[in-house]
Design a protein around this nucleic acid. Structure first.
Lengths: 186, 186
DNA sequence: CTATATCCATACGGTAGCGTATTGAAGGGA
DNA sequence: TCCCTTCAATACGCTACCGTATGGATATAG
């Protein structure tokens, strides 16, 4: 009863992984049954063994991403402890480490699929709420905290969307300046 | 020699407009010749009169968007005159009036089309340069100006991407606060 | 009135991908 | 050993869309 990965037979998970990879590289529209099968060196006969249809795969891929990418960062930030200002900086630094390719593709996907859009809204809400809460703890009034949280989160998503990746050193300096600007109190 | 719009015959521009509309509503993948023709109450015989092929239309749609949403806005801001701080606020207000649906769809499109991605990079650069220049005029040092320009521009793109639209009043208050935060000098 | 340019309909062949049905192969358990 | 489960190959019909070819309609210029 040994699970033989890495050899001949494919698992459902293998298809999901390939789905994620293709999704990140070239968008949902290219996550299609026959091209994927060709990529994996099999025919679609295999695919339809593991999945009901194409939508079944897409659903599985999405759930996989949510599982991996939703609560992980928040947990890491909470684990280090410290005050809210420190947590905020750590949050910025962590968030900026992802290249955002999968997230990008999923947001693009949500553009013409309202079910995906709804799911994304929940993810965004969770992240925004957490960020805003940190600003509140620092001492900003609710509206001030919200606007600041939005600015930094939207800016992150914007950077993912635009896809500019400057070198890591400059990136870090930039993040620190953002942090300074946003946590500055008059 | 009267140009009869609004009646029977279609123009190339009519197709471009429908292309933009469909693009905003449901993405590039749905901007297809035959469905569009059905939407416009004609057959594709008409389409291939005005366009070489589907790509020809997509190219035209893209150029139309660049013309409307980049060149035009910058021109409007320059026309009002005033100092850089004033221009910046006006720029924010103008930018925030678009719902970002077309821009969104185009960015999604760029995800799996490098030619589109290249064009978008140019558009982003143009907008960023202009914004940064205003911050420079206000008196910020180059790095400070760049970070501020990125923050506000990325935040705008991020908001488009996420798609949250609060009511216009709150939206305006938020923009003003952003403006205050970013133009504040220690 | 006739001719020409402009715009559109119709009909056609071609391709990519979906999903199904059926058969084949290979390995583990009784 | 034999069977049964698991995974994959093959072949098929179906649909949506692309682009082309050709001919028809309508308006306008001469």
């Amino acid at each position: 009863m040994v699970k033989n990965n890495e050899s001949s037979k494919l698992t459902r998970q293998d298809w999901i992984n390939q789905g994620l990879k293709t999704l990140a590289e070239s968008g949902v529209e290219t996550v299609r049954v026959e091209p994927l099968a060709k990529l994996m060196g099999v025919t679609k006969g295999s695919f339809y063994w593991h999945f009901k249809n194409r939508e079944d795969l897409l659903e599985a891929v999405l759930q996989e991403w949510i599982k991996l990418q939703t609560h992980s960062i928040i947990e890491q930030v909470e684990e280090i402890g410290g005050n809210a200002t420190t947590k905020l900086l750590y949050l910025f630094e962590l968030a900026v480490q992802d290249d955002g390719h999968v997230e990008n593709a999923i947001r693009a996907w949500a553009t013409n699929d309202s079910k995906i859009a709804d799911l994304l809204t929940q993810v965004d809400q969770r992240r925004l709420d957490y960020t805003k809460d940190l600003f509140l703890q620092i001492g900003f009034a609710p509206f001030e905290a919200m606007v600041r949280a939005r600015m930094v989160y939207y800016a992150l998503v914007g950077e993912f969307t635009i896809g500019t990746r400057s070198d890591q050193a400059e990136r870090l300096a930039e993040i620190r300046l953002q942090h300074a600007i946003l946590t500055h109190q008059n």
